[in-house]
Amino acid sequence: MKRHTLWILLAGTAVLAGGVARAAETPADFLARYQNEARQSAPGFSASAERGEKFFTTTHGGEWSCSTCHTKNPAARGKHANTGKAIEPMAPAANPERLASTRSVEKWFGRNCKDVLGRVCTPAEKADVVAWLMNSPR
């Protein structure tokens, strides 16, 4: 009887833990995903934090760079260029909510790339940016 209960408890815990592990996404998941996507067209591709930083901090023909709102320091608080609203840091080391959900990451890459570049970002560009953000200390 007692053992039985224990087994049920253990099994339940394992199922729960498994569910949580599958639901949570890590920055490394995004790096791997974008890198794999980029390799479909460029097999030798490897993400570069250095390229990511350059991409993030320079303009691309428009008025804004990514840094206009997010600053050049991923560990710092940013400020929306139009509204002045504070934007929490981008580096996962400084803000555990970053690079943790596909829904959020894809939504914001989609919007912000259109605002800054007038087009979607390529998987290679996203991989580089993620690599740079992951590299940033807190």
Partner: peptide, 8 residues
């Protein structure tokens, strides 16, 4: 949306 992409 006021010069920004806010699509959902």
């Amino acid at each position: 949306h006021f010069g920004s992409d806010a699509s959902l």
